[in-house]
């Protein structure tokens, strides 16, 4: 249910401020925003636990080694920033199934989990292929 106080900021304002933050990041740190490379690093780190030779033999993991870097911390920061913004504005809400999904596919948590998992695997494959 949408709550009365759950309004947020204008997307134009929040977007423009994001543009300012991204410009400052390029200026002072030389880093452009990105996220999908971090999933490669995470996957490499996990796979290394049970198949270290496999990780070492794959060119893609050599090119993108499983280390924690600027972008990895950036993705963690996104989670924290959203947590701060939502809990301080009472728009934080534990939700297992989104409203629009529920209206179309019902309230099943496992159905949503299955689709989100498969969708995520497909999405990152495409994102990596396009180098996005």
């Amino acid at each position: 249910m949408a709550r009365a106080e759950d309004k947020g900021w204008s997307p134009y304002l929040a977007g423009a401020l994001t543009g300012v933050v991204s410009t400052l990041s390029v200026w002072f740190v030389g880093q452009y925003f990105g996220a999908s490379t971090s999933f490669v690093r995470f996957a490499g780190a996990l796979e290394k636990l049970f198949a270290p030779e496999r990780v070492q033999s794959l060119e893609y993991f050599v090119k993108t080694p499983p280390v924690i870097d600027w972008q990895w911390m950036f993705v963690v920061g996104i989670l924290l920033g959203s947590l701060i913004a939502s809990t301080t504005s009472r728009s934080f809400e534990w939700k297992a199934v989104p409203d629009m999904w529920k209206r179309r596919f019902g309230p099943s948590i496992s159905k949503r989990a299955f689709a989100a998992f498969i969708g995520g695997a497909i999405a990152i494959f495409g994102a990596r292929l396009a180098d996005g």
Binding site: T18, S82, S86, S91
Partner: peptide, 8 residues
């Protein structure tokens, strides 16, 4: 960025 994404 996360703060602004949530606010937006």
């Amino acid at each position: 960025f996360g703060f602004l994404l949530q606010k937006g």
